[in-house]
Design a protein around this nucleic acid. Structure first.
Lengths: 184, 184
DNA sequence: TCTAAGTGCTACAGTCGAGTGACAGATAAG
DNA sequence: CTTATCTGTCACTCGACTGTAGCACTTAGA
């Protein structure tokens, strides 16, 4: 086959993406050289896959977005019982936050990203409305507060509780969330 | 007097600092030129006050640190009733987050900053221990979880609830916090 | 009104990172 | 083993930002 990608090339690509995500997450100004070095690859190799720094960023964002969408599908927000769906969702997103960390302010500055994100933000808001209808969440808080708190908790758990598995961290997050803004 | 600072100079200095904080908060790579332009002064004027970009950063950090220390003092964490001190503290920090926003990862990379911060982190941990002793906070959560959640909530309220006054935002944060990780 | 403090502008040197080109060498896969 | 694919290295160009200098001008404040 001529179109086949070589295995080592695939590994390198993966390394550049994950390393890039990690480094850019706590320093958005990280150099291509630095990322390449950390990934164990030459600077030039990065440029062979990505025409520019922007393209690398886009690819990293794409990876994160895809992972999030997968997590959302897996949570079955429309069908599964609210409590179950919530826990599956939280666990999934914590995993994503760990594998594809990203400086969110920066990422959301991209229009294409924000548009794509809006879709599932809306889906999740619908889910929260269902949770409120079923009496699981309070309705006497500032509009959207619950939807703001949860992502922050998931981010916190992903970054600051590294000793916990995603499932354990999700336990803590869901507990804090449901007590904090819920009726538990 | 010869040592006296002119009033307009003081205004410009203030503008550079606050504008710098705001711009660097959502783009750590913001240019000195950009900051100067936004603050309504010439690039050269910034360099007259601060020998280098680093010095400007240091001055901004200094402003934030001082504001935080003032807020902590005002909260009287050791003496005042726990509930009162907590609310005063949260309100104060929300104010600081609004006036002196900053990219925290970046700021905490500075050693001098982290050392200085450690002092009042410890003081606040003592306060949380007191709250736990008095039965206001649960003790069955991952170590330090409460101390991690609160700052995130304060940041969130400061940035995402701009329509609320600091006091109102503090109401929400304290409520969510005490229910989430407390025994309320 | 007078003066010293403060500012804007133009111009310059130095540095660093982005991105490109060519070629020889390494390696996966048949 | 052989070949197409992938990679490292040297050697550039280009643009942007930092930091500095001198001069003419404005403004606060006594």
């Amino acid at each position: 086959m001529l179109g086949r990608v070589r295995a080592d090339a695939a590994r390198n690509l993966e390394a550049v993406l994950t390393t890039g995500a990690r480094m850019l997450a706590n320093d958005p100004a990280a150099t291509i050289s630095a990322i390449a070095a950390e990934a164990g690859v030459d600077r030039r190799t990065v440029y062979r896959r990505f025409a520019s720094r922007e393209e690398l960023l886009a690819a990293i964002y794409e990876s994160r977005l895809a992972a999030i969408e997968e997590a959302i599908e897996g949570a079955r927000l429309r069908e599964a019982p609210v409590a179950v769906a919530l826990h599956r969702y939280v666990e999934g997103i914590i995993d994503v936050n760990r594998k594809w960390p990203v400086e969110l302010h920066r990422m959301l500055a991209e229009d294409t990203v924000r548009h794509r994100r809006d879709r599932w933000v809306q889906e999740f808001d619908t889910f929260l409305a269902r949770a409120t209808d079923e009496g699981l969440l309070r309705s006497d808080l500032p509009a959207g507060w619950a939807g703001l708190v949860l992502p922050q908790l998931m981010l916190l758990a992903a970054e600051q509780l590294p000793q916990l598995s995603a499932a354990q961290a999700a336990d803590t997050v869901v507990d804090t969330f449901l007590r904090g803004v819920g009726t538990v």
